[in-house]
């Protein structure tokens, strides 16, 4: 399984990547929507874990382009605080899951493997 982690908090994605590696899951990371989109379109990922609120290209816009150009790629969206309208927009755009921070990495993996 290959995973792409996208969050403007570099320390978050690098640490999460290290934790996934300890579970033998290969991951790449990006710190902006633009960079994440470039990686997602240039390579195959089974899952993209995408932060919603990022400077520049936000998570929702990134999600829409990924699902339009790589419909087979599964996307999980991360957010700090849940909002009903945000949840609906994200799910309508094709996200598989809408997760709240802080993450439970084992729950994350269980959702990927389900």
């Amino acid at each position: 399984m290959r995973v792409l982690l996208v969050d403007d908090e570099e320390e978050l994605v690098t640490t999460l990547s290290e934790r996934l590696a300890l579970r033998d899951i290969e991951s790449d990371w990006a710190t902006s929507g633009e960079e994440g989109l470039r990686l997602a379109l240039a390579s195959h990922y089974d899952w993209v874990v995408l932060d919603l609120k990022m400077p520049g290209m936000g998570g929702l816009e990134t999600l829409r382009v990924i699902k339009r150009q790589r419909p087979d790629t599964q996307v999980m969206v991360l957010t700090g605080h849940s909002a009903e309208d945000e949840f609906e927009a994200v799910m309508r755009a094709g996200a598989s899951h809408y997760l709240l921070k802080p993450l439970d990495v084992d729950d994350l993996i269980a959702k990927m493997q389900a």
Binding site: T15, E18, G80, P102, V105
Partner: peptide
């Protein structure tokens, strides 16, 4: 500000998780 705080907690959560993993 609360969004920023949530990010700090998320980071602490990942560092703590990595400590437990190691």
């Amino acid at each position: 500000v609360t969004h920023e705080l949530k990010n700090y907690l998320a980071l602490i959560n990942e560092y703590n998780g990595l400590l437990c993993d190691l």
